[in-house]
Simulated scan of single mutants.
Amino acid sequence: MFKLNRRTAGDVTFDAFNVLIMLAVCFITLYPIWYVLVNSFNEGQDAMRGGIYWWPRIFSLESYQAVFRSSGIMTAMGITIAKTLLGTVVHVFFTAMVAYAFSRRDLVGQKAYILLGTVTLFFNSGLIPYYLLIRDLHLLDNFLVYIIPAMFNFFDLIIFMTFFREIPDGLEEAAKIDGANDLSIFVRVIIPVSMPVIATIALFHGVYQWNDYFTGMIYINNMDLQPIQTYLYRIVAQSSSNQMASAMPGGISKNVTSQSIKLATMVVTTAPIVLAYPFLQRYFVKGLMIGSIKG
Rank of each mutant, 00 (worst) to 15 (best):
A271L: 14
I273F: 09
F214Y: 15
L37S: 01
F154H: 02
T29L: 10
V285P: 06
M22W: 12
A247F: 12
K111S: 13
F154Y: 13
V19N: 05
F41G: 03
D15V: 06
F163G: 05
V267N: 01
L275W: 06
L23S: 11
R135V: 11
T95F: 12
A237S: 15
Y283D: 09
F284A: 04
S240A: 07
I114Y: 12
M223R: 14
S239I: 08
D224H: 06
V145D: 00
T80Y: 14
N242A: 10
V92T: 01
R105T: 12
R282Y: 09
Y131G: 00
M151L: 04
R188N: 15
S239N: 09
P56S: 01
R57N: 12
H91D: 06
F186T: 00
T230H: 00
T200Q: 08
I73Y: 12
D169S: 15
Y131F: 15
R49A: 11
Q281I: 03
F123E: 03
I185W: 04
Q45A: 15
Y100V: 03
S239E: 13
M248H: 06
A264R: 05
G78M: 07
G51C: 07
N124S: 07
K286V: 10
R6W: 08
W55C: 07
K294P: 04
N5I: 12
V36T: 15
S60Q: 00
G117D: 09
N181L: 03
